[in-house]
Nucleic acid binder design. Structure first.
Lengths: 121, 121
DNA sequence: CTCCAACCTGGAGTGCGCTCCAGGTCAAGG
DNA sequence: CCTTGACCTGGAGCGCACTCCAGGTTGGAG
């Protein structure tokens, strides 16, 4: 029964304390356990969710969509198809994002080459 | 002497009219020509800048830095070294961004594989 | 038991990059 | 000339994802 204090959860997940509270407030992270006194105790499961949120956030998924995913997961087994499809559609968008980024990176490198070939240094 | 009306410039650059005006207002795009009556006329040169801004924006450069670059370019030849370095530093950040995106994309694909391997469909 | 760093809440504030609006002006086709 | 759609300005507003704050509570070390 591992439990992490807020500061520890923040350190492990890379999110700030405020962000963890925010994620709970908007219903991304649900039912975070509390001590008798009301202080949060994060479980390994919570940490797992945070790792996923980081992945989705870093790949540009809007919070509303992450919330939808989390919501579906909470509804149980019968939503697995929808969850899988949601992730697949997102993955496609990430692929598009990567292609665009690569393309613009190539432009950028060419622009830099232009500067490097400039006469007089 | 090609000149483009605002709507045409927007179409060609992919930026909205409002964004074009905004870019001029904040000093990204300087000295856009006008008709006698005050309406903007975009040149091929302006369009070139817009293509660059799109590249930089799509690769995540903040507007303040784009403005700095544009400022340097306007100051003349003696800023080429600084401009090149600015672009190089940015390119490095884009590389880092691409690595992160790839890493998180891999996580995402693995998560999707998890769903695909799920027993019972 | 005391202390104090870490935690709590609700709500306001921030930064970014646009986007929209009202109320007027311009200019090209008919 | 007249119409009308594209354009102008200054400034307010928006959506997102946090981030910060005040004022109070908790809980483990000593």
């Amino acid at each position: 029964m591992t439990g992490y204090a807020p500061a520890e959860a923040a350190r492990r997940s890379g999110f700030s304390l405020d962000t963890l509270r925010y994620y709970e407030k908007i219903g991304l992270l649900a039912d975070v356990e509390r001590t008798a006194g009301g202080q949060r105790v994060f479980t390994d499961d919570d940490l797992g969710w945070l790792v996923l949120f980081r992945c989705l956030r870093d790949t540009g998924m809007p919070i509303a969509q992450m919330r939808r995913y989390a919501q579906l997961a909470r509804e149980g087994e019968h939503t697995v198809d929808e969850r899988r499809e949601l992730l697949r559609r997102h993955a496609e968008q990430v692929e598009e994002q990567m292609r665009l980024l690569q393309r613009q990176y190539d432009h950028l490198r060419e622009k830099i080459r232009f500067y490097e070939r400039l006469p007089g240094r």
